[in-house]
Structure formats: structure tokens, C-alpha cells
């Protein structure tokens, strides 16, 4: 194998920028990140890019390739035709820093607003007992490598900057879901999910699920179940009445102290 591929790479910073053309060698088995590295070693030594593991494990190399949010290290060159021009841009939902690097601090701020895991106060380390079937749902969500591609692709913030204050994006709705399903957690985050994290912004259009490199079923397994659990509490009078009769003692959870958005 081995051919020259045509690339367009977005270069610039917040003051402006544009797509630059490159023609680069491609060898068998390479991924897009290899090509970016080759550019750095040859034509563009100061081309800014984030990466760490080059094995799809750290979630650093998120970008948009031919308009689709993807990990550069997990996008094989063999998925493109040899005569195709491949366009790489930074993620378009977050402010750009330089070239392919964006400012993802939005995500870290939202992460900080999710009330943390709270185990029962009297449970000693070493005494935790959890059944495998009870941890499995949350384990799926803990596969998340925080590439933030889901938050990048979610139209609620991608297309509406102003929603960033009130909506935390799929990644953190999933985090709430994860804690809600944790067998030993004692906090009820359902009200927080709606009030502070904007659960209602999600219109279940599933783009987050589409792009997740970990193949987590974000919408089906995290967000919709969370919406249903919220409905149990907020929108379902019958269920609320039933719970008065103690039918749902599973749900003896505290409400957390107010956070920043409260």
C-alpha cells in the first residue's frame, strides 16, 4: 500500500482561521492521528493536537473528521477512499484554543455540579457487598473515557450556546444515571437532574449514542431510564401515591445540598 492522501486541516485560534491543504503519505494500517503526527514531523511542526494513549482509552484526541465527531486515533485511514479529501476540524461545540485543540472546561464545570457518590455513613471500607447484576448498569456508564464527543454532538448545546448554563449534556446526565443506579448510593438526584442539569433539554434524538466511541447506549440505557425515574417522582401521581404506602422503600434517598446553579 502507501499513497498520498489529500487533507484539509483547520488551523487557527479564536481570532479566526481556516482549512489548510496538505498532501501526506499514508501507510498500511494507519489511523488519522498517525497522519496528524506525520504532519507535525514534516510540514507543520506547531500543529496543535491533543492525544495520549493512541489506543482509544483516554479520550483526548476528539475532533471532527469529515464533519463527524470522532476519535482521531480510532479512525482508520482504510475507511476512506484513496481519492477522498479528508477534512479535520476541532470539535465545534467548545471554544477553540488552537488548531485542533478546544477548551473543554465546560465539561469539567458540569462534572463538578453532580452531587458526589454518598455511601451509607455506617458502612466500613471492606464491608461493601454488591451483586454483579446490581453494578452492571452503572459499570456500562463507567466505561466512559470522557472524550466529550457526546456533548460535542448534542444539538442542545452545539447549536445553542446559551443553553450551556442550564444543560449539562449527555455525559453528565449519564453520570447522574450512573449514581442513581449505584446499589449503595444514598442520594436522590432526580430533582437536581431536572433543575440543575437540564434533563428536559434532551429530546432523545440519540446523536450522543451514535458518536460514543465506547459504544455506550447513552440514550437508551442512561437518559431515558433517568427520564422515567424522574417521571416516577415528578410526573406520575399514581406512582407517587403508591410510594406513600411504602411500596418503594428502595427509594429512601436523601436530597443533596444545593449546588452552583441552584
Amino acid at each position: 500500500m502507501g499513497y498520498k492522501a489529500r487533507f484539509k486541516v483547520w488551523r487557527g485560534d479564536k481570532s479566526g482561521g481556516g482549512l489548510e491543504d496538505f498532501s501526506v503519505d499514508v501507510n498500511e494500517g494507519e489511523v488519522v492521528l498517525d497522519i496528524v503526527h506525520r504532519l507535525q514531523a514534516t510540514d507543520a511542526p506547531d500543529l496543535a493536537v491533543r492525544w495520549n494513549c493512541k489506543a482509544g482509552k483516554c479520550g483526548s484526541c476528539s475532533a471532527e473528521i469529515n464533519g463527524r465527531p470522532r476519535l482521531m486515533c480510532m479512525t482508520r485511514m482504510s475507511t476512506f477512499a484513496e481519492d477522498e479529501t479528508i477534512t479535520i476540524t476541532p470539535m465545534r461545540t467548545f471554544p477553540v484554543i488552537r488548531d485542533l485543540v478546544t477548551d473543554v472546561s465546560y465539561n469539567y464545570e458540569k462534572a463538578r455540579m453532580v452531587p458526589a457518590f454518598s455511601p451509607p455513613a455506617d458502612l466500613e471500607p471492606g464491608d461493601y457487598r454488591m451483586a454483579q447484576v446490581d453494578v452492571e448498569r452503572s459499570q456500562e456508564f463507567r466505561k466512559c473515557i470522557e472524550c466529550f464527543l457526546c456533548n460535542d454532538t448534542c444539538h442542545a448545546v452545539r447549536d445553542h450556546e446559551e443553553n450551556k448554563t442550564s444543560f449539562s449534556g449527555p455525559r453528565f446526565l449519564m453520570r447522574i444515571s450512573e449514581l442513581d443506579m449505584h446499589p449503595l448510593d444514598t442520594v436522590d438526584r432526580r430533582e437536581v437532574a431536572v433543575q440543575e442539569h437540564g434533563l428536559g433539554y434532551c429530546n432523545i434524538t440519540k446523536c450522543c449514542t451514535d458518536v460514543c466511541p465506547e459504544h455506550i447506549k447513552i440514550t437508551d440505557n442512561a437518559i431515558i431510564p433517568l427520564k422515567e425515574r424522574v417521571a416516577d417522582k415528578k410526573y406520575d401521581p399514581i406512582f407517587s401515591i403508591a410510594s406513600l404506602f411504602g411500596k418503594t422503600k428502595e427509594r429512601a434517598r436523601r436530597t443533596p445540598p444545593p449546588g452552583k446553579n441552584a
Binding site: 487557527g12 465545534r92 461545540t93 471554544p95 477553540v96 478546544t102 452545539r158 447549536d159 445553542h160 450556546e161
Partner: peptide, 13 residues
């Protein structure tokens, strides 16, 4: 024009 992907600060594409 000023919201979404054209918001100030984001990469101008």
C-alpha cells in the same frame, strides 16, 4: 448567526 456553531470563540468554519 451568533449562536450555535457560529458562536464567538468557536472555530470559525
Amino acid at each position: 448567526a451568533t449562536t450555535g456553531i457560529e458562536s464567538p470563540g468557536r472555530a470559525q468554519i
